[in-house]
Design a protein around this nucleic acid. Structure first.
Lengths: 200, 200, 200, 200
DNA sequence: AATGAATGAGGTTTCATTCAT
DNA sequence: GATGAATGAAACCTCATTCAT
């Protein structure tokens, strides 16, 4: 009984590629079925609607992110190392599957049906997990207590997200001038130390 | 001869509200005309298509942002003060017209027709202006020279953008618990000093 | 009081050129007003609708054709000479104003509103006038009595019309290979003598 | 696999009736789908646009005419008999399907998209085939050598076309007074012998 | 009478979804 | 379950006509 689940994932992966390429609403279900190599109507054996495909992408892929954070939390205890590992995971996710990141960042939150309490709960679980790490850093007296953990989290995620978005979208952003590994280090450095020159 | 320009702007403002509410592709041109209180066909006297309305919003509003930065650069000379003023302007823009910010952040960059060289040039002019300020701060030895000005700029903008987005979208984000003025100060503090506790 | 009639005719002439160029239904009233160099709304000072412009073209220009036949009938008495003069007039009309002929041949009869009894009466007056000439030729024993005058008339007009249409429309029809004057003579010759070689 | 072709032809036949009734541009695609008894959108499974329907009618039906001429040429060798058979076929086509003839004569040549080199080539193939027959008649010394074969062809076709058009359109043309078979004979007689009385 | 901005009904086309095979 | 032809609601846009100036 591996066949049905496999096909479901084939469709989901195809949908990610198509949505990333054209955007959700410019993507036609026919495009998805072609990309997946399945019959037109087969989409509806696995998903009730086009909406449902997008939301499934969000729910299933976001859950993987959350699980990964859980795993990092279990493996590492130092907040700094945890943030590093998470940022690393996000960067590598972009590198592995930029299409998925495009969809998660650009299409999911712009979709009307996304705005249900359950989806928000799942979405915010990510920020809450990050905020928990931050809070622990504050308790361990290694992070600044003047900053709200949630706000800190938004800043961290926003800095990472906006930068990676340039790699994905911005044609004027020169990949060779900014090697991704170096960029990652600069972001982490800046978030931790700030952009102001430290007094000696 | 104030009439025609006025009507064009009425349509543009209405379109911003409608796009913000429903997203670009779920918005119908009929909705826009109703919201603007003009006849259906009048949209097409001022804009050649629905696409053109969205792109006009981007071009005209983004230009205002750039002009504002110019003005700030002419008025203030200290890089710190300049960043503060720009972040302040962005925060106040959100407060004044969150709908416009939604559209600029969420709809414009997800639209296929957006991706023309001219539009990218205009878009990137914002980041270049910020990077110039950052570079000056480095030359004045007040900003960290280890960070690329462009990356720094993405981090600054990303932190601000992602946080404000929570005010605009996230129903679980409690506005009262996080007064906007205080949030702004925390972001600026964190970007400048980093989240790590400074050694004394 | 020459002004108003002048403008009316300016519009009519402009409409003929526009209809000939694009066909009636692809022609926009805006095109006509621009071609005429009058204000958009002015069309409706002189004509009640776009339909009415087309029908006015037919009524007024067709009447000129009928008057010309009348004049020919008054001037000439020999049926052969009369036909020659009429065919000559039609050929020269094409040369002078092919646009008008295009409209009269192609657009007017394909228009729904054309099919009123009065219009048909006017239209058929042309064929009746020709048939009368033919009948007289039969009575004078110079034309074949076995042919119905009306059918003869359709054949004569059809031969002329179809040939001239090639000059106007057919891009593969080489004008230089077929000088119009020579073509006219061949048509007249063929209609009168038939295409069969006469026994000596 | 008879189903798809059948439906395509059902749509084409329905379109012919609708176009003949209202003219191409007054015909709505909804009318065609209703007349064909198929769903609205089905039109677009078989044709890419309304234009394409009209041009398909031309291309497919005109090809049948050309094939018929080919067949006549293979079956008969006498030019006179060939012309007779072709005129006969045209007359019978009108009788069988006057709607199709209306569309071919009135709508197709007035349509902008018709004017492509390929369409003209197909269109002119008809006249070229007729001209070849005429030329052969000249070589066999049975047709007048003074007439250009192409001009002769236009006259023959124009006479037939204009006359049949009266049957189809002209409400003042009395079908009973002019039995179609008799009309056909008169046309053929007139084209061959001319309308002038032959000297004995 | 002249103007042209405004109007909105109606057209073509798209495409998510259904369903008979 | 798989297939893809069929369906028809709904979208964008056009453009003849009106009407306030």
């Amino acid at each position: 009984m591996d066949k049905a689940p496999a096909k479901r994932d084939i469709i989901l992966d195809a949908a990610i590629r198509v949505f990333a390429e054209k955007g959700y609403s410019s993507s036609r279900t026919l495009d998805i079925s072609k990309e997946a190599g399945v019959a037109y109507g087969s989409l509806y054996s696995y998903f009730s609607s086009k909406d449902e495909i997008l939301l499934s992408i969000f729910r299933e892929r976001w859950r993987i992110l959350l699980e990964r954070i859980d795993q990092i939390n279990r493996t590492l205890s130092d907040p700094d190392e945890r943030f590093l590992a998470i940022i690393d995971f996000i960067f590598r996710s972009y590198q592995r599957n930029p299409a998925m990141m495009k969809v998660l960042i650009m299409d999911v939150p712009r979709h009307k049906e996304f705005y249900t309490p359950e989806n928000w709960k799942l979405y915010n679980a990510f920020f809450k997990a990050l905020a928990d790490i931050f809070r622990e850093g504050q308790e361990k007296e290694i992070y600044n207590r003047n900053i709200s953990p949630l706000i800190a989290t938004y800043c961290i995620y926003g800095a990472v997200d906006t930068t990676i978005r340039q790699y994905v979208y911005n044609p004027e952003f020169n990949h060779e001038e900014f090697p991704i590994e170096q960029t990652r280090q600069q972001i982490v450095g800046m978030l931790k130390q700030g952009y102001s020159k430290r007094e000696v």
